[in-house]
Design a protein around this nucleic acid. Structure first.
Length: 935
DNA sequence: TGATTCACG
DNA sequence: GACGTACGTGAATCAG
């Protein structure tokens, strides 16, 4: 049955190229298992199409749909202007062969797939939109390309599928400052760097919109250009008239593209299951094939045989049976468990996973343990599941029947888990090790798939089990949400029925074992075995120790501060409302922006992409020179932050049993090799402001003990001086000089003894800027000086220290060639975005410059931490915290000097012997009854 | 849930 | 020729 396109019809036009590029850049470079064909973009493309199709339900669903592609690189626009799109980078090599496959994929989904030689996809989209609109139908263009915005209106809208934002006439006006019918005029003036449309020099979208709104349209503007008041602008328009008119022709989309099909040909059709599944299967998209087969209620076709010969990726892939949650065993008797233990001893290794009542290892109770010895060979040992009896008010919760006694099971397992000859394999083993430690079991030795993945692929993808399973096994694990639910009605694992728990939990152990078999051999081929063996694996138990010790926090101190903050905030709030002339929520940036910029009419109101005024501290600081209200808001914000994030929240983190705060370090938290600290984050306790620093007074040592803090002095700059090999900086460090003053002296020729604080401050900002991948803009904003002046500083800096520029170029080149950068200790940080273009490339470049410096510093303190327990083993001291370049210890007051000496020695010599740093590493130390004093 | 803001190195 | 820009994190909050 065909439906003639007309009123009531809804046409979807998908910008195929945008989908492809999104898919390509969003995913790591996947290859087809059987033959190594690059298929990352095809995989992403199919996932996006599938998600798109899934979302097409309800009254707004399309009646007609097509995916539109570009064809060839030469179009009629190149005949008008040979530089059109001339600055486009060539298509990446591994994307090129995937392009035809995306056409096949579209057809496999049974969606019309259209392209036309000599025309851009945009022109076809324009033509179809016009036709559909004229026929009285609706159109949704699925794209975020601003070149298509001229088509919006009269029933045509755009949809940014990534952000799920519909762009209507108002959306276009927000972006261009004019309606869709004048968009081409604005684009003609502003030009477009991406497509190399020249436009008028020095005129951007803002100015263009201003001019068009004043004169009505482009032609009138150009005819009356003489009337423009600003001399420079006037001259630009007069001088560049021809170029502007050309630009307009370039951006104007063609609504009369000769098409050899009609709208009726685009009617929505159901996919043919066999065609679609065969295609997906041929691409070896196992997860997607299975998901779609399930949804269609048909059997997934058999997966193709994996090639078993070795590849350059290392040894042959391990043959594994499919993951089948129904195949796992529930262990309920000592005999059963004994059989498993025999099997483990025979194997020499076992994957282990614990199930507990919560995520806080210091509070959670053990519910069960799972083991896996081979792919598909996994069991679950339920220990503390509950069984609900009765209903409602009379419900009682008892221990579920058919479980081994916890003590018997643990007594049997302890010798295995502690046996030096049996390797325990876990995913995030620190968690399980901490839980088991509380049950008297010290797990060792172990491998951790999360840490292996991090050593291999930091920067490429996440290292959680779900991400790894998808990536390396093509399998989506059972989501924990399916068992526990979410939100307020969430249950704990002990309330999950044992049969369900077995399927979920044993699957985790099975997956962990499989991941280990896949990933472990790669450490060697990727040359990161040393990173894993010296910086990752040995650190995990050290962190576990620190976390379990925790640091004592004084609740009364925090509570008193909270009350004081609350009072001050109330007073400030009253004052702010008074100044505003009305009552509003000071904590709402939206309301604050409206008060400041709409009601009070202050200058400098800038709206972000959400349309809200920006009210960040830097903006309020500028306003504060003229008005009291923003100054009060700044004060209020500081107090609000201190109260909610620190004095209040920290109290909730004091463990009732230990009276201490136990953070969790995420070893894979930062791509550079730094740690992250969560629940609570103890790496961002205030110190910069006087008021905030007092919060550190609540971090205390118990009676008779002291807190000791040791931190590396300027470690990142020292590493920069070494890596970039800058003689002047190295000498300054060698001589123990003030490095920022020395930099200033070198740059501005001011002798050290005549240095002013302001000149030193500027040099300091530049030094930091260099570490972060400096830009004129960034330095200008930081120092609040004109951009040209900032650029002058940078130029001078590079002139004085040419090695820095060499380092930056060498590093970005290396990243482009290899896709990663390295620390001095061989840690690899991947930089997949480095090949991107546009603003993303800038980010990636700066990150690539920073990563070896930040990462090397992170490696050094990791090495120190790994060695520390042995160095202070005979001293009455515990290492408690790490804050990137600082270690905090709790020490008997009699041993402060001995511990300082021992710890300092470890820290200062931490790079050796692996790496000889040409600059001394210097550690400063402090001690006191609380962290404020020690720091 | 995402954006904004702000605490740290 | 304009774009949007310091690097790396986590938590609280508002608003949709």
């Amino acid at each position: 049955m065909t439906q003639h396109f007309g009123k009531g019809c809804h046409l979807h036009l998908i910008d195929g190229s945008a989908f492809i590029f999104r898919a390509y850049h969003a995913l790591p470079p996947l290859t087809r298992k059987s033959d190594g064909l690059p298929i990352g973009a095809v995989s992403g493309f199919c996932n996006m199409l599938h998600r798109y199709v899934e979302g097409n339900t309800g009254p707004d669903a399309p009646t007609h749909v097509a995916v539109i592609f570009d064809k060839g690189s030469h179009t009629f626009r190149n005949d008008m202007y040979d530089l059109y799109k001339a600055n486009r980078e060539a298509m990446p090599e591994d994307l090129r062969p995937q392009i035809p496959l995306t056409r096949t994929a579209t057809e496999a989904f049974n969606i019309a797939c259209k392209e036309l030689e000599g025309y851009e996809a945009d022109d076809i989209i324009a033509t179809l939109s016009c036709q559909a609109r004229d026929a009285g139908g609706r159109v949704t263009i699925i794209s975020s390309d601003k070149d298509l915005m001229q088509l919006v209106g009269g029933g045509v809208e755009m949809l940014d599928a990534m952000k799920n934002i519909r762009i209507d006439v108002e959306g276009v006006e927000a972006k261009f400052g004019v309606g869709p019918d004048r968009v081409v005029d604005v684009q003609a003036l502003a030009g477009d760097s991406v497509d190399n449309v020249p436009g008028a020099p020095g005129i951007g979208i803002k100015t263009a919109a201003l001019l068009i709104n004043e004169y009505g349209d482009l032609e009138t503007l150009l005819d009356r250009a003489e009337e423009i008041k600003q001399p420079k602008r006037r001259q630009t328009l007069i001088d560049n008239r021809a170029q502007i008119e050309l630009s307009k022709r370039l951006v104007q989309l063609d609504c009369n593209t000769p098409l050899d099909f009609t709208l009726d040909d685009l009617e929505v059709r159901d996919p043919n299951p066999e065609t679609l599944l065969n295609f997906l299967n041929e691409m070896e998209f196992r997860t997607l094939t299975k998901r779609i087969a399930d949804q269609m209620g048909v059997e997934a076709p058999a997966a193709p045989e994996a090639v078993t010969s070795g590849t350059d990726e290392g040894p042959a892939p391990v043959e594994m049976p499919a993951i089948d949650p129904e195949s796992y065993e529930t262990v309920t008797t000592a005999d059963q468990l004994a059989t498993w233990i025999d099997r483990i001893r025979e194997r020499g290794y076992v994957a282990v996973d614990t199930e507990t009542t919560g995520l806080d290892e210091m509070k959670a109770d053990l519910v069960g343990i799972c083991l896996a010895t081979d792919p598909g060979q996994a069991c679950y040992i339920p220990l503390n599941h509950l069984a609900s009896e009765g209903e409602g008010l009379f419900a009682t919760e008892d221990r579920a029947p058919g479980q081994m006694a916890e003590k018997i099971a643990l007594d049997m397992l302890k010798p295995v888990l502690e046996d030096d000859a049996i390797l325990k394999i876990g995913q995030n083993m620190k968690y399980d090790a901490k839980i088991l430690k509380r049950y008297g079991i010290s797990v060792a030795p172990f491998d951790d798939t999360m840490l292996i993945s991090y050593a291999l692929n930091a920067g490429l993808h996440g290292h959680g089990m779900d991400a790894l399973s998808e990536q390396y096994l093509g399998h989506t694990p059972i989501p924990i949400k399916d068992l526990l639910g979410s939100g307020k009605s969430m249950i704990t694992f002990d309330m999950v029925p044992v049969d369900q728990a077995t399927r979920y939990a044993a699957e985790d152990a099975d997956i962990t074992l499989r991941l280990w078999q896949v990933l472990k051999p790669q450490l060697h081929t990727k040359k990161v075995t040393t990173v894993y063996e010296t910086l990752e694996r040995p650190l995990s138990p050290v962190l576990a120790q620190m976390e379990m010790h925790g640091i004592q926090v004084d609740r009364d101190t925090l509570s008193r501060m909270s009350n004081a903050f609350a009072q001050k905030m109330a007073a400030l709030e009253a004052e702010i409302h008074e100044l505003a002339g009305e009552s509003f929520n000071v904590g709402s940036p939206k309301q604050l922006g409206e008060i400041l910029f709409d009601k009070m009419g202050l200058e400098g109101g800038k709206k972000g992409k959400t349309g809200a005024y920006a009210t960040g501290a830097d903006i309020l600081e500028d306003l504060a020179t003229e008005h009291d209200l923003p100054a009060r808001v700044l004060d209020w914000r500081q107090l609000s932050k201190l109260k909610s994030t620190y004095t209040d929240a920290l109290q909730d983190h004091i463990n009732p049993e230990t009276g201490r705060v136990h953070t969790s370090y995420v070893q894979t938290g930062a791509n550079t090799g730094r740690l992250a600290s969560t629940d609570p984050n103890l790496q961002n306790i205030p110190v910069r402001s006087e008021e905030g620093r007092r919060i550190r007074e609540a971090f205390v040592a118990p009676q008779g003990r002291k807190l000791l803090s040791l931190d590396y002095s300027q470690i990142e700059l020292r590493i920069l001086a070494h890596i970039a090999d800058i003689p002047a900086l190295k000498q300054a460090f060698e001589d123990g000089q003030d490095i920022h003053a020395a930099t200033a002296s070198e740059m501005f020729g001011v002798p050290l003894d005549e240095m002013t604080p302001d000149v030193r401050r500027q040099a300091k900002a530049i030094n930091f800027g260099v570490i972060y991948g400096i830009s004129g803009f960034g330095l200008a904003r930081n120092l609040r000086i004109p951009r040209a002046e900032a650029q002058g500083f940078i130029d001078r800096y590079f002139e004085r220290f040419p090695g820095i520029r060499d380092y930056m170029e060498a590093t970005t080149d290396f990243a482009k060639t290899h896709g990663y950068v390295q620390t001095l200790f061989g840690r690899r940080i991947h930089t997949p975005e480095i090949a991107a273009k546009g603003p993303r490339a800038g980010f990636a470049k700066r990150a690539a410059i920073n990563a070896p410096i930040q990462g090397t510093a992170a490696d050094i303190i990791r090495r120190a931490m790994v060695r520390m327990p042995a160095a202070i083993a005979d001293l009455p001291a515990k290492m408690l915290l790490q804050v990137h370049d600082e270690l905090v210890f709790e020490v008997d007051e009699t041993a402060v000097d001995a511990v300082t000496e021992a710890a300092r020695k470890v820290m200062e010599s931490a790079a050796a012997p692996a790496v000889k740093i040409d600059v001394p590493l210097v550690v400063d130390a402090g001690q006191g009854d609380n962290w404020a004093q020690a720091h």
